[in-house]
Design a protein around this nucleic acid. Structure first.
Lengths: 230, 230
DNA sequence: GTTTTCAGAATTGCATGCAATAATCGCCAG
DNA sequence: CTGGCGATTATTGCATGCAATTCTGAAAAC
């Protein structure tokens, strides 16, 4: 067995990872104040690396730090969604264009397999499986685009909406529309038509934007299910 | 006069600003090691906020920090340029599309004024003025796009190539091509043709990519003129 | 009953100290 | 003279302490 590069995870990385999980899982809710003392003891690092982690996540927009007033989980507003999604659309559009150009036959086979599994989940209205496979397909396409910068930026933006539990709220019409767009994606990818794939992805983002906005208006603002009426 | 919100600049902000200037001005050269002690005394803050600043800039890709080995100014490689520019192209394309849709007549007048000043600078081969106005025009368009996320991401990517002194190397043919694209930009903006403006900006980025690559191959790698053969 | 005030507590921002890791340089073998 | 090795030095990573700021809440004023 090859010796694994014994890679000392820094306390800052540990804090970043831990905080990401807290934010993504909804343990920290929008508007909530993040106290350094509290978090540092929970995570098991001192305040210095924790503060570094907070600043890093703030730069990504996942939290916001106010001078002398500590960090908060930002409330996600409609205007932020409207700001965010066009940019994600542009990035995914580029990803699609590149992915179609670079995909090997094997890559396309992989995506096709995921696609048909997802279509099956959609037909039986299995939300959880659908969303898992959906994510896998999008990750796959992004990976095919083969651009670290693209992956990094997209990930940063995606993390901001990850807290919104829009999946649960996805209504039938929007879900069908999304599924239809996925059909078009597969066709464009099979035809290795980059511009078409890019265009579909941009349309798809618009559908996602509407889904997220609907969820937001239903009161699923931000991470967690804390605001759920039951 | 309204009382200005007296806002205390944090030591971290001070360090970030200072480091940005050092990197942008070429005082710190690619490959150079950044020592915390040295920098902190020069900037006048202690190591803690300096370290926060380093991590923030590292997240933007302006520097890289290796575990236990400190921070370095990364060498800019061709592959990084090839990675970066398509993404910037997608962002500027979006900016153009939005800018054309949102611009008021007054906005267009402003851009037109800048454009004709720049054209004059181009005709008399006044590089410095041309590049200043060029930057102003691009900033203006980005501002018209009216998207904080777009501005932020574009700024982060732009900072990475800002250190490369590609302006000095811009050869005649590429310069003329860039100027022609600016003509098209103005036309598209005047016609409020968003897609057209977006497309021009993407083409323009490709021209810039070639310019930067040429400069890189001439040995102007990264910030500063240290590698210049004289 | 509502608002203002102000002392005490809590919290953040930053500097410094100490342990752990990496770089450096002189020394010795070949 | 060159290349490898070990002690010394330099540097990073992190924890902690202290000053400055903000928050809290209870009493006083209206």
């Amino acid at each position: 067995m090859a010796e694994v590069e014994a890679f000392p995870v820094s306390a800052t990385d540990k804090a970043v990872t831990h905080l990401r999980r807290l934010l993504g899982s909804g343990r920290l809710r929008p508007g909530e104040r993040l106290k350094e003392q509290e978090l540092s003891t929970e995570i098991g690092v001192s305040r210095t690396p924790l503060r570094e982690a907070l600043k890093l996540l703030a730069q990504e927009g996942l939290i916001e730090v106010l001078p002398n007033r500590g960090a908060r989980v930002p409330l996600v507003s409609e205007s932020e969604i409207d700001d965010l999604f066009p940019v994600m659309g542009a990035l995914e559009g580029l990803a699609g264009t590149r992915a179609a150009a670079k995909a090997t036959d094997a890559d396309i086979d992989d995506v096709r397999a995921l696609h048909y599994q997802m279509a099956a989940a959609w037909r039986r209205r299995d939300r959880a499986t659908y969303h898992r496979l959906n994510r896998e397909i999008h990750d796959h396409l992004l990976r095919l685009a083969d651009s670290p910068t693209l992956t990094r930026l997209h990930g940063a933006l995606d993390a901001r909406v990850a807290g919104i539990r829009f999946e649960a709220e996805m209504d039938g019409a929007l879900w069908d529309r999304a599924m239809g767009e996925h059909e078009d994606m597969l066709k464009a990818l099979e035809a290795r038509n980059g511009p078409a794939l890019g265009a579909v992805l941009q349309r798809h983002l618009e559908t996602k934007r509407e889904t997220v906005l609907a969820a937001l208006q239903e009161g699923f603002a931000g991470a967690g299910d804390g605001q759920r009426p039951v």
